[in-house]
């Protein structure tokens, strides 16, 4: 093919080839492909949130147990309990010392976690559950101090700082060791591998597996959180109807609720922010779809309910943090979500 080309073209092709080789070797210093921009220090700083046991990554600042108590009770206690005892199936944060060898160990910050840095790191990256990355560095220091205090790792007067956090020794730190597996050795036996007379056969614990999809008449949990909640609500209605001597049929109309436009608009906010507590009735919150929980509240009128939801409210059964802890929500979004819950729970 080159035979057909004149010298001038041949030379210019050669130049292109050399140029390509040169530029490739030029890129080699920055990486083989030279793909991707150099990340700026500013870009990295915004995302570089991790903390290490040696304190690397900790921001400037300090926190106190006293300030932490206030933050904790407003932002954390709903799920983790006032004393870190855990509500529902949410994580227990404190206690459990000496239980790791027991039949039912309680693994908490104090009884299990090897490093205090993990606490700062985790609160900073993921808490509070409904509003991650909403806390200031100061708030994280305060809450970290308070959780350490709940675990009796620091005392009331302790001021947690960038410099002393890494010095805190956690009670269980020495008890972690690197994976030694393979730790068991089976052999490929083919005949007479066990004494048939000595086999112990234990059956399955019944009634806790969702098996409604293949076992007729199974009285078992559902296979999704929503369906489980529906099932529980249905059972509760049936129980109450029986108590009142009513037939269930009168109550089990399709359950279709016609929502106003405001309520309809509030559904995504409910799903993303409110459902965590109101979906299950966590810590005394009025449970979604449960008229009994809402009737008296609805009587107070929408403005009161919306006001409580926006500003926060402490009632007889529990605490509603301002906007449920989701301060990023607009007042309008909260109002819509309240409308959605109210209209779905009449």
């Amino acid at each position: 093919m080159f035979k057909l080309l004149d010298n001038k073209l041949k030379n210019s092709l050669l130049a292109v080839a050399i140029g390509a080789t040169l530029s490739l070797s030029g890129i080699a210093q920055a990486g083989k492909y030279g793909i991707g921009e150099t990340a700026t220090a500013k870009e990295i700083a915004g995302w570089d949130i991790d903390i290490r046991p040696d304190g690397k990554g900790l921001p400037e600042g300090q926190g106190t147990v006293e300030a932490g108590e206030e933050q904790y009770e407003a932002l954390c206690a709903t799920c983790h309990g006032l004393f870190g005892e855990g509500e529902g199936r949410w994580p227990v944060l404190a206690g459990g010392e000496g239980t790791l060898t027991e039949e039912r160990p309680t693994k908490t910050v104090g009884s299990y976690w090897p490093y205090a840095s993990t606490l700062y790191d985790y609160i900073r990256r993921a808490m509070p559950f409904t509003a991650p990355r909403s806390l200031s560095d100061q708030q994280v220091y305060d809450i970290t101090a308070y959780v350490l205090y709940l675990n009796e790792i620091i005392d009331e007067e302790f001021v947690l700082t960038k410099d002393n956090l890494a010095q805190i020794e956690m009670p269980n730190q020495a008890n972690f060791f690197v994976d030694p597996r393979p730790d068991v050795k089976n052999t490929r036996c083919m005949k007479n591998c066990a004494d048939p007379d000595k086999l112990q056969i234990a059956g399955t614990l019944r009634g806790i597996t969702p098996v409604g999809h293949f076992v007729e008449g199974a009285d078992a949990p559902a296979a999704s959180h929503d369906a489980q909640m529906e099932q529980e609500q249905h059972k509760e209605k049936a129980r109450k109807a029986t108590l009142k001597g009513e037939s269930l049929a009168a109550h089990s109309s399709s359950g279709a609720v016609t929502l106003s436009a405001t309520a309809e608009a509030g559904k995504p906010t409910y799903e993303g922010a409110c459902k965590v507590c109101h979906g299950s009735g966590l810590t005394g919150s009025p449970k979604f779809g449960e008229p009994d929980a809402w009737t008296d509240r609805i009587k107070q009128g929408m403005p009161v309910l919306v006001d409580h939801a926006i500003k926060g409210f402490t009632g007889d059964t529990g605490v509603m943090p301002p906007k449920g802890g989701r301060v990023d929500l607009s007042d309008k979004q909260v109002e819509e979500a309240v409308a959605y819950m109210v209209e779905s729970s009449r």
Partner: peptide, 20 residues
Amino acid sequence: WYHREETSKYTDLMPDGRAR
């Protein structure tokens, strides 16, 4: 880094109270 998912979770507690 010893973050939550490699300390509190995803570590294996042994009968002697130590953890892998």
